[in-house]
Amino acid sequence: MPGTSIPVNSITNKLDYSIAITRKTFADTWLSDELREAHRDDYHLFLLQEEGSTEIKIDFQAYRLEPKSIICIHPNQVHHLGPFFRGKVSFLIMNNESLLTDQLNLLDDISPLKPLPLDDESFNTITNTISLCIRVYEDKQRKLYHKLVKESCNLLVGLFISQYMETITPYDKLSRSAQINKLFKSLLDKNFITAKRPADYAQMLNISTPYLYECVKSITGFSISYHIEQRTILEAKRLLYYSDRSVKQIASDLGFNDYPYFTRLFAKVTGMTALAFRKKNHD
Rank of each mutant, 00 (worst) to 15 (best):
M1Y: 08
P2E: 06
S5T: 12
I6N: 02
P7K: 11
N9M: 13
S10R: 15
T12W: 13
K14M: 12
S18D: 10
I19G: 01
A20W: 12
A20H: 12
K24Y: 08
T25N: 14
F26G: 03
A27T: 12
T29Q: 15
D33W: 06
E34G: 07
D41H: 13
D42K: 14
L47R: 05
E51R: 07
E51F: 03
E51K: 11
T54G: 08
E55P: 05
I58F: 01
D59C: 07
F60T: 03
E66I: 08
K68T: 03
I70N: 02
H74A: 08
H74V: 07
Q77R: 10
Q77W: 10
H79G: 04
G82R: 02
P83I: 06
R86T: 14
F91E: 07
I93T: 10
I93L: 14
M94Y: 02
L99E: 01
L99N: 02
L100P: 00
D102W: 13
L106F: 07
L107M: 15
S111T: 11
L116S: 14
L116V: 11
P117T: 00
L118A: 04
D120I: 04
S122T: 14
N124A: 09
N128F: 05
N128L: 13
N128R: 10
T129Q: 15
I130P: 03
S131W: 11
I134G: 03
I134S: 02
E138L: 07
E138R: 05
D139Q: 06
K140E: 12
R142H: 06
K147T: 12
L148H: 08
L155Q: 01
L159G: 03
Q163D: 13
Y164P: 11
M165K: 13
M165D: 03
M165T: 04
D172R: 07
K173V: 09
K182N: 12
K182I: 00
L183I: 15
F184M: 05
S186L: 14
S186T: 15
L187W: 06
L188N: 01
I193H: 12
I193G: 11
K196S: 11
P198T: 14
N206K: 10
Y213I: 00
E214P: 01
C215T: 14
V216R: 00
K217W: 00
S218E: 12
T220P: 02
S223P: 03
H227W: 15
R231G: 02
T232K: 05
Y242D: 02
S243I: 01
D244F: 13
S246N: 06
V247E: 09
Q249R: 13
S252Q: 09
L254H: 04
N257I: 10
Y259E: 06
Y261G: 03
Y261N: 07
R264P: 10
L265Q: 04
F266H: 06
A267T: 09
V269D: 06
V269H: 07
T270R: 11
T270P: 05
G271F: 00
M272K: 11
M272H: 09
T273N: 06
A274P: 00
A276T: 14
F277I: 02
F277K: 04
K279Y: 10
K280G: 05
K280T: 08
D283V: 02
